[in-house]
Amino acid sequence: MTDSEPPTTRDPGLQPERTGLAWSRTAFVMLLMSALLLRGGIVHHEHWLAWSGVVLLMATGAMYAWAGWRLRMIMTSKAPVTLPAILAIRVTTLIIALAGLTLAASVLYHGQLLSHLRALLS
């Protein structure tokens, strides 16, 4: 093979490992957040928080499975960016955003934040 010939296989280097670790770290943070939401929902009898924790816990399991599958796909594929990868990133972002909005709505509705804000404004 000469220098002018394009390589026939892709040399992934450490990128697949870094990508797999990033997905795993994201799943671990999702696991922590789902545990906090579940605990908060159960302790404070807030059903929306508990259900949000359950949904996030299911998404965490899917994220761990996806991380392993994604790492194998990156290591063997010549096209690491595929439609399923893009959709998984969008679904993950949507689920995390919905869990955050649920938590924010619960804090605003049940918490004393609004009463403190009203006291400051009046």
Rank of each mutant, 00 (worst) to 15 (best):
T2C: 01
D3P: 01
P6Q: 13
P6V: 08
P7K: 13
T8D: 11
T9R: 15
R10P: 05
R10M: 05
D11R: 15
P12Y: 07
L14Q: 10
L14R: 13
L14N: 10
P16F: 03
P16C: 02
E17G: 11
E17L: 15
R18Y: 06
R18A: 05
L21G: 03
A22S: 08
A22I: 02
W23I: 03
W23R: 05
S24C: 13
R25M: 12
T26G: 15
T26K: 04
T26F: 14
F28T: 09
V29I: 14
V29H: 07
V29Q: 06
V29M: 11
L31F: 11
L31Y: 04
L32I: 11
S34A: 15
A35G: 14
R39L: 14
G41L: 07
I42T: 09
V43W: 06
H44S: 14
H45S: 11
E46I: 15
E46N: 12
E46Q: 12
H47I: 13
H47L: 15
W48S: 14
L49C: 00
L49S: 03
W51T: 06
G53Y: 00
V54T: 01
L56R: 00
L56S: 04
L57Q: 07
A59D: 06
T60G: 02
G61V: 05
A62Y: 09
A62T: 02
A62L: 14
A65G: 08
A67T: 00
G68C: 05
W69S: 12
L71E: 02
M73T: 13
I74P: 01
S77N: 06
K78A: 13
K78E: 08
A79N: 10
V81A: 07
T82G: 04
T82Q: 09
T82K: 05
L83E: 10
L83Q: 10
L83T: 12
P84I: 00
P84L: 01
I86F: 08
L87P: 01
L87I: 15
I89F: 11
T92S: 11
T93A: 13
L94M: 11
L94T: 08
I95Q: 02
I96H: 03
L98M: 15
A99H: 03
G100T: 09
G100Q: 04
L101S: 09
T102W: 02
A105K: 04
V107T: 08
V107N: 07
L108I: 05
L108C: 04
H110C: 00
H110G: 07
L114N: 12
L114V: 11
H116N: 12
H116L: 14
H116D: 13
H116K: 12
L117G: 01
L117N: 01
L117I: 09
A119G: 07
S122W: 09
